[in-house]
Amino acid sequence: MDIDYVANLARIELTPEERKKFQGQLGDVLVYFEKLQEVNVEGVTPTAHAFPRFNVWDEDEPTTGFTSDEALKNAPKSRNDQIVVPKVIEE
């Protein structure tokens, strides 16, 4: 596993110690997962839901939402009723 690539995908910064430790542990886990490759799953429909249904929806009837105070109460930083984030570098 390319741990740096995946840690970046998951947006988790690892300490050098964690990186080393996980590399080994996750390697073992993946070996353990190899069992899955031996299963014959030809023609088997994947299970996304234990008890699938269709068309679970609401009618389009709006309700009122949060006040901006409620919306921002837990925010680490806010200004002008909005969340402040450090400058976004386009990527």
Partner: peptide, 25 residues
């Protein structure tokens, strides 16, 4: 220092080992 940092560092510092391990897996 930037938005990417906010993610990687907040999650790196805020999550424990098992959570990080499972999110990466």
């Amino acid at each position: 220092e930037n938005a990417i940092d906010v993610y990687a560092k907040s999650r790196g510092e805020g999550f424990g080992e098992e959570v990080k391990r499972r999110c990466i897996l």
